[in-house]
Amino acid sequence: MTTNEIEIAPNSALLVIDVQKGFDDASFWGPRNNPAAEANLAALMDAWQESGRPVVLVQHASRAGSVLAPDQPGHALKDFVEERREQAALHVTKTVNSSFYGTPDLAEWLTARGIGQLVVAGIQTNMCVETTARMAGNLGYDVLVPLDATHTFDLTGPDGTRLSADELATATAVNLHGGRFARVVTTAGVLTAAARSRLAA
């Protein structure tokens, strides 16, 4: 997909999913991929806020024993997100993978504002980002996933097969694209398209 084929709606919502300090704990999660994810997320947040488009922050509240549990320091948003928090239009708290099962109700909020396009980014690529994008596609939203504004971790399956974070991210891209849940794009492409639509307005 070329940059010219991406169109960003004037009220397109940017979902920033689970960008929390607990994901910096390598001893808990293991090796990660895409060290550029945070910089790309910050660039997207700034572009959305500068254009007046809504940013939705999603924060995971795990059960006890997880670094993302509400009573743990890792539950907190990463500093660059916290610094931009006041400008966010909505803050959703969830306990499962999909951002559509949280408080307040994301779909209800989007419907009330006539928002039909979502740019979905954050952590983890193959978990909460992919689950949210799949559900958004099922619900009829136009979904864009800038894969380089996400990251994940190596993971082992039930038979001992281990996939690297990059392999899992590739699988997510194939699942979302091949399943027509979302269009997988780049941060640069989204930023260029967002700027172009703003100039044309």
Results as ranks from 00 to 15, higher is better:
residue 66 S to H: 14
residue 4 N to T: 15
residue 147 L to W: 01
residue 135 M to K: 11
residue 133 A to S: 13
residue 36 A to M: 10
residue 2 T to D: 15
residue 16 V to Q: 00
residue 51 S to H: 11
residue 78 K to D: 07
residue 11 N to I: 01
residue 109 W to V: 06
residue 41 L to M: 14
residue 87 Q to C: 09
residue 92 V to Q: 01
residue 2 T to V: 04
residue 125 T to C: 11
residue 12 S to R: 11
residue 160 G to D: 04
residue 103 T to M: 10
residue 40 N to F: 02
residue 36 A to F: 02
residue 34 N to A: 09
residue 162 R to Q: 14
residue 16 V to L: 11
residue 40 N to C: 03
residue 8 I to E: 03
residue 166 D to S: 13
residue 73 P to Y: 06
residue 60 H to C: 08
residue 132 T to V: 09
residue 90 L to P: 07
residue 85 R to M: 12
residue 190 V to F: 02
residue 30 G to Y: 10
residue 111 T to Q: 15
residue 57 L to A: 10
residue 151 H to Y: 15
residue 123 I to A: 07
residue 61 A to Y: 04
residue 176 L to C: 10
residue 163 L to N: 05
residue 87 Q to E: 13
residue 68 L to R: 01
residue 191 L to F: 04
residue 160 G to Q: 09
residue 143 V to T: 03
residue 83 E to T: 14
residue 14 L to E: 01
residue 114 G to C: 04
residue 55 V to F: 00
residue 155 L to S: 10
residue 66 S to D: 14
residue 59 Q to H: 04
residue 94 K to A: 07
residue 89 A to K: 08
residue 135 M to Y: 13
residue 195 A to V: 05
residue 82 E to H: 05
residue 146 P to R: 06
residue 15 L to P: 01
residue 114 G to L: 07
residue 52 G to P: 08
residue 77 L to T: 06
residue 106 L to T: 06
residue 121 A to Y: 02
residue 200 A to L: 13
residue 26 A to H: 12
residue 142 D to H: 14
residue 116 G to T: 15
residue 68 L to P: 05
residue 162 R to K: 14
residue 51 S to Y: 01
